[in-house]
Design a protein around this nucleic acid. Structure first.
Lengths: 345, 345
DNA sequence: CTGAAAGCGCTTACAG
DNA sequence: CTGAAAGCGCTTACAG
């Protein structure tokens, strides 16, 4: 690998000058510049990043902290963020973290050694030490996952989970459903906020005592399948389900079908996220659309400004969601309570 | 940020000694070691990575080159690879690349500046310059995506796409189907290999003249929806479809349903990949299971050995696939050719 | 077992 | 406009 002093020798100038033209600094005579560029081109010289980062004491890269088992919603989100960040000139470094302290600690240690320009959180850390560090080390960070205002040092770009859940449940109520179960995930605060919305909507409709909540281990299809299976086994009655992620809903639909129940004939199913696949399912999934593109764009932009020292005015942004009514939800018709068919043969 | 000389001063030793204990080198008196560790702990000192990488002339990180719009199959694969790589002590740096020369060039330039220990290719580069560079710079690389043996310098861990496709089509043939369409993606050589398998199976069954191939833009559900729509519009007759990715199959099923056709009642659909979601669909998707976990593990292991200088014996590994017959494929029954219903008013 | 010194490849005041 | 020099934070022969 050729380095800057070799280039300098080849051209017959000093490394300082080479550095200047490489970094687009002014004050270099046009002809010299041309010669240098020519040699750089010929040799295929690429500056050593580690050396550069060291002296500059920054890395021009932003870290993206994301759950190890990130679902499709985050899959889509991070692509968008990555793209915007690139457009701003940042590289991107992923930190996959699991749901345990050990993993969070490892992540934090790595973070510290990287000299990151900034951080995007697509994850919620349990350990407060993490956020304390960001604050004390004055590392700009933006979250798309914490509750708005939950972590003072970290502005959050998100939707209003609670009112989105209210809308989802109201959609079901408007269709005539009264016994609406909620299938929630675990481990993220947005689950709580969506649960709050569910309860609130029920309450407003005078059906708070119909609340029926089951908690899945995660937000995946498999978790949804299992949780819905358990719900059906319990013998609880319901004609609709609100799942707090599309993947949960997909698993739930599968469990319903496995018991011979029709969606939406017997049970209406409502998701949350509007991941790409939801519109290709049979039936197409009714859901709450998160404005993924806008969240990603805003988060990247906000972080960029943050890094450049344009102090943000605080809590972040709350973006509008959309109710997408598709085929997996429909009216109750005779409004009878579903009696789940007994399991097995 | 505290650095190594400050730590040294605090303890009253030289930076050399601190460096030794941090890196677990021998020859440090136990008591000194203890004191140093204590101060390191107290101050929360983390070595500066850029500095370390520079002097060591390596980064302890492997690059993962992956299509910008990677699908769920790669999503699952990269998580597995990332985990194994971590277990071997590598960090991981993603390079998202688009299907154009520009993007490939950018990727290559970044690659050069990173001093990577090795590279995993979850993508196929069009520009031969990329592979030439890997070879000339002697950067260990392993692919999971190129054809086996396609790029001499890059061993490949993959399945036998052609014979997997043969199995898929034979499954359909065994069910009584004769008019089997293939829905292929674009831009990756494995598409060609799967196409070869499709043709081969047809030929072996004496039905080569029934070949009916439509090429989608990509391997996504949307692409599958569109391609299947076009196929139906063409008026071509078929009772089964072999799609070269599960996502393509999902889109195809949606298009079929949109025309009022039943899967598998009217048309059987076969996918390829066996991504997580496929087993939750209604109907559950019949498909070819790629041994994702094994591919990921093997690729990581092979790269690790490669990096350590244990020269691989060349072309890589071919792992076994599995035919997974689920609900989206079934016998033809009366074996009539489907006459597509005319498109809606 | 330990430290002083050189060096990794770059950038940036500083002096001209 | 340009170069010599110092310095970023680490590691590693080398000499003791």
């Amino acid at each position: 690998m050729v380095n800057i002093v070799e280039i300098a020798q080849l051209v017959g100038v000093s490394p300082s000058t080479v550095s200047r033209v490489i970094n687009g600094k002014p004050y270099v005579k046009a002809e010299k510049k041309k010669e240098i560029l020519k040699i750089v081109e010929e040799t295929g010289y690429i500056p050593n990043k580690a050396a550069r980062n060291m002296v500059l004491r920054r890395s021009f890269t932003v870290g993206i902290v994301i759950p190890d088992d990130f679902n499709m919603f985050r899959r889509q989100l991070f692509s968008i963020i990555e793209r915007h960040l690139n457009a701003f000139g940042y590289h991107t470094l992923f930190f996959f973290v699991k749901q345990d302290e050990e993993s969070e600690k490892t992540c934090l240690d790595r973070l510290k050694s990287e000299n990151l320009d900034g951080i995007i959180m697509l994850h919620e850390m349990k350990s407060p030490g993490f956020y304390r560090y960001l604050e004390s080390a004055r590392i700009p960070a933006v979250s798309t996952t914490c509750g708005s205002g939950a972590v003072p040092a970290v502005p959050t770009v998100t939707l209003d989970d609670e009112s989105a859940a209210v809308d989802a449940v109201n959609h079901l109520i408007g269709l005539g459903h009264r016994n609406i179960a909620m299938l929630n995930g675990k481990g993220f605060s947005y689950g709580n906020r969506r649960l709050d919305g569910y309860l609130k909507a029920l309450e407003a409709a005078g059906g708070r005592d119909c609340a029926l909540v089951i908690e899945a281990d995660r937000y995946s299809s498999q978790a949804g399948l299992e949780a819905m299976g358990a719900l059906l086994d319990s013998g609880a009655g319901f004609t609709a389900v609100f799942a707090s992620s599309d993947e949960l809903a997909i698993g739930a639909m599968r469990a319903l079908r496995d018991r011979g129940l029709k969606v939406p004939g017997d049970v209406s199913v409502m998701g949350f996220d509007d991941i790409d696949i939801s519109n290709y399912l049979c039936p197409r999934l009714s859901t709450i659309r998160q404005p993924i593109a806008e969240i990603g764009e805003q988060a990247a932009l906000m972080l960029h400004r943050f890094i450049r020292g344009e102090k943000e005015d605080g809590a972040g942004a709350v973006l509008p969601h959309t109710l997408v009514a598709r085929e997996s939800t429909k009216g109750t018709g005779p409004r009878v309570l579903l009696n789940p068919v007994p399991r097995g043969p």
